[in-house]
Nucleic acid binder design. Structure first.
Lengths: 397, 397
DNA sequence: TTGTAGGCGTTATCAT
DNA sequence: ATGATAACGCCTACAA
């Protein structure tokens, strides 16, 4: 053990500590009555580390001539500290361009002020908006946003969750991939007690807060609108059967029919995986039959766009021959012709709300009870569904 | 000073340290020949902290009966450690579900493995793609991505850079806001020596690596294509005059004319701020004149879409009456009718390359020399510019 | 009012 | 081959 030796007598047992000088421990030899300081041997942190060195609390302490703890307290306006000292410290902090080391703070406080987000795909406009909402809200409260994409792969999602959790995030906001049907990977992490908020494609099995689109109402509004336009045979391009949003939007679809007292035929529901080919197949199937659909409700705007392009390719006129409606209000719907009737789920607000739910949980701690919030959206009627009253000049400029 | 007292004799001067037991300092009283350990008084970290507690290296050390340093080394397969010990440690690590505390690692190594990204707007499809490229590439190398949006505001951008830099990121990838014309906020941070990579809207004044779209070539290709289609009076919807991309794309435009030996009239260049109204104004101005443009080259796809919608609103036929081309290959261009001729800048690759340039800098350290990489894109010809040979059925299904 | 010491979790260095 | 220690920068209970 390299105990401290007295430079004069060389003894070890006689040494006492005698305070700090400029952040360095000072020693005192009882026998020699000699104060001394250990010369720091150039340790492993040298070259490249040094220039990265930021001003620390100790630098300020040295400059002002007080201890590090006093500086720490002065900087947070602790009441114990004299106003003169405070002023001096703050002055020095500015002069030395002090920036607190958030890493050290985080390590100490076990709190990183980082929110982890896992989305299937950043490039999808819906998620981009949600992300934007998250980022804004988080930033406004001094939180940082760390992003991961699952690329709609369950495996990647699980890996993301694993890494993200190892990063001491304060909370996780997640929207599951299309593939995800089991949630063990999440449940495992929940033990750590980190707040999790689900949005859009949620998990029904976990005790987490959730932010939902108003899937049922939205779908119901759209389908009701189509019924009002006189369509009776309304086909649906749905997503994979296990998807939460598929279930809910189908529920809205059915509810609209029930409400209108119109019977509904299972054959008008096609479960696809949202790919171009699966959508084309579904449409082909319907069009091959004697009785063709009068309208197609696509449960996502993206599939609505694919549907419209395919119908146009088949020389079918929208909305005269067949109406189309989507769900999502991506801005592509405003650009395609005829413009797409859809439901705006207020994506930005979804992100905002998810973040706020997380904040609630942080603030209330144990007292927080999980919540499910449904974001009201709005029906956007455009030409693609106006069978009775189609007028191309309705289009926005 | 609360020096350690001997529990038997109560003396202080007789105490010597005598090693650690399970992470706790052990003491020894010379006089009483008595070993003891201080009972930890419940310190301030109690309730809420405890359940967040993860397995640490010390827990493993205790379990296996070795020291923390041995565990640390064993886990990284340090050659010094015996294979039996390694096996034991790794076993324990798995059993205790050990996850290294990246925060502590970062603090120690002064390296966070976090890349900060500042973009004007996540919801813009170009930036969404770039971001996706960054995220993928970073993730593949174990780096995390922290995102900020400037909302095209210089002030927000400066604030973002400030906060992001305080977070001990390893590198910063940035695309400046439209407003940004001075770069002091960046230069200030450059002193810290953190690698910075610019992309798209770069800063020409700083010694940073840059990733550029092939603005000149792209614009030149588009304009040349328009010239080949027989257009001579090619108007340009440009962005703000100070913007890097405006300058470069105008340069390409001019170069195409020069190449073709055709004279070019300044009045065909309109500097807008990309808003709908400024674009409408520019178009109105041109159309009021006797001699009208035969084509409009918009230096961004978004303005091209706005342009097309406005022209359609004015009952002008595209491309028969007037051709339109954009720049960016947003997927909206595939949806609008007629489909938009544009230049694909390979946004994903831009993000990927920016990230790789950052990695180069990390790996090479001082030996790294800043680089400017230009990403080659490709001309995408669609119907909106096919004056000579327009055939609506060319459209993709 | 201010200072001291120890801890957050990990790791490089030195000592054994 | 393994252990002890100090350091990364900050924070707070307790001592003075």
């Amino acid at each position: 053990m390299p105990r401290v030796k007295c430079p004069k007598c060389g003894k070890v047992e006689t040494i006492l500590k005698s305070g700090f000088v400029r952040g360095v421990q000072r020693y005192y030899c009882k026998e020699c009555i000699y104060h001394f300081t250990l010369i720091k041997k150039g340790r492993y942190r040298s070259s490249s580390f040094d220039n990265k060195r930021q001003t620390t609390i100790i630098d300020i302490a040295k400059a002002v001539g007080v201890s590090a703890s006093t500086v720490s307290r002065a900087l947070k306006n602790h009441e114990d500290i004299g106003s003169r000292t405070k002023a001096l410290v703050k002055q020095a902090a500015i002069e030395l361009d002090y920036q607190p080391n958030l890493l050290a703070q985080s390590l100490n406080r076990r709190e990183t002020h980082v929110i982890g987000v896992v989305v299937p795909d950043i490039e999808n406009p819906f998620f981009a908006s949600v992300l934007s909402g998250i980022q804004h809200t988080a930033s406004a409260s001094g939180y940082k946003v760390m992003i991961y994409q699952s690329n709609e792969s369950h495996k990647t999602e699980a890996a993301n969750i694993q890494t993200i959790m190892n990063n001491w995030i304060d909370g996780l906001l997640i929207c599951h991939s299309k593939e995800t049907q089991t949630f063990e990977h999440l449940k495992l992490q929940m033990k750590k007690g980190i707040p999790i908020v689900h949005f859009d494609r949620i998990c029904e099995e976990t005790a987490t807060s959730k932010v939902l689109l108003d899937n049922v109402t939205g779908a119901k509004q759209i389908v009701t609108h189509l019924l009002n336009e006189g369509c009776r045979r309304i086909a649906v391009i749905a997503g994979p059967k296990h998807l939460y949003i598929t279930k809910k939007r189908i529920e809205g679809y059915e509810s609209a029919f029930k409400n209108a007292n119109i019977e509904l035929n299972e054959r008008w529901i096609a479960y696809t995986d949202f790919t171009k080919s699966s959508i084309h197949d579904a449409i082909d199937n319907w069009l091959m039959e004697e009785i063709k659909p009068e309208a197609i409700f696509c449960i996502s705007d993206n599939s609505a766009i694919l549907t419209m392009m395919y119908l146009k390719h088949l020389k079918l006129k929208i909305p005269e021959d067949i109406c189309v409606a989507g769900f999502g209000n991506d801005y592509t719907g405003r650009i395609i012709e005829p413009a797409l009737t859809t439901y705006d789920p207020h994506a930005f607000k979804v992100g905002e709300t998810a973040t706020k739910l997380f904040f609630d949980q942080v603030i209330l701690g144990d007292k927080f009870e999980i919540k499910t919030v449904t974001i009201a959206g709005e029906l956007i009627v455009r030409s693609s569904s106006l069978k009775r009253s189609y007028n191309p000049s309705d289009e926005e400029a």
